[in-house]
């Protein structure tokens, strides 16, 4: 299996604090890969570096054989990397439908179209995504009025709108009830199986990680200390000391 994403020696410092010091990561085509690590390990910063929200100080990010290090976020998205955020990051004053439509229009490069009404454009693709994510019934609701769980699902729907090949999810179940967590992870699994999506996510809930991920990367203090299949990671002594020991896996 070819590697869809490769990260090598990535580093980023803020005012001298090295949030990510030396991160390495391999995401094979079609796989579900998790990043774990204690709070402040640099997971979110790593995702921001990969998706272009932050420019790295050093290191390389290679997507689908092309280096994308330091490209602007919208450019990286256009190459096929979609993402969600830890907090519900949506367009609160737009309708649910428009939230997803914006992404679909951007993906089709028709965002700059000035005079044709948007109401008739990209309707079917948008609706298909809403249907897949179970949001179709709420299509005309103003997004800011959705429940927290639905807003997180909407986030995934927005990310799907840009037709990513790699979907990066930053703690997709944070703040969710156990039922919502189960439903969300079922959705993620289905997207990977049926849509042929490659998924990279980070997560606090170890049961979720070990149930879903095919490969796990462990970070601590901004560094990658291991990556491998769940069983190997579980038995890695350094990982146990660094993380699983005190997190109580």
């Amino acid at each position: 299996m070819a590697d869809l994403l490769r990260v090598e020696g990535l580093g980023k410092a803020f005012d001298g604090f090295r949030a990510v010091a030396d991160a390495a990561l391999v995401v094979p085509q079609g796989a579900i890969v998790a990043v774990i690590g204690p709070n402040g390990a640099g997971k979110t910063t790593l995702f921001n570096l990969i998706t272009g929200l932050l420019p790295p100080d050093r290191g390389r990010v290679v997507f689908d054989g092309h280096e994308i290090t330091g490209l602007p976020a919208h450019e990286i998205c256009r190459r096929g990397v979609g993402r969600t955020f830890q907090i519900a990051n949506i367009f609160p004053r737009l309708t649910v439908f428009e939230n997803v439509q914006v992404a679909v229009l951007a993906q089709r490069r028709t965002s700059a179209n000035l005079f044709r009404p948007a109401a008739g454009q990209a309707v079917e693709d948008t609706a298909a995504i809403l249907e897949r994510t179970g949001l179709l019934a709420r299509a005309q609701a103003v997004a800011g009025t959705l429940s927290h769980g639905d807003q997180r699902i909407l986030e995934i729907a927005i990310a799907l709108g840009s037709r990513p090949r790699l979907l990066v999810l930053d703690e997709p179940t944070a703040g969710m009830s156990p039922e919502e967590t189960a439903a969300t992870m079922a959705l993620v699994g289905r997207l990977a199986r049926e849509g042929g999506l490659t998924i990279l996510f980070c997560e606090h809930d170890m049961s979720v990680v070990f149930a879903v991920a095919q490969s796990i990367m462990v970070m601590r203090g901004g560094r990658t200390i291991a990556q491998g299949p769940p069983e190997a990671v579980r038995q890695n002594r350094e990982v146990q000391e660094a993380y699983l020991g005190d997190a109580g896996a």
Binding site: C77, G82, I158, A159, S162
Partner: peptide
Amino acid sequence: QRCQTVGVD
């Protein structure tokens, strides 16, 4: 920020 990450310049 969300717009950037869905490919909007």
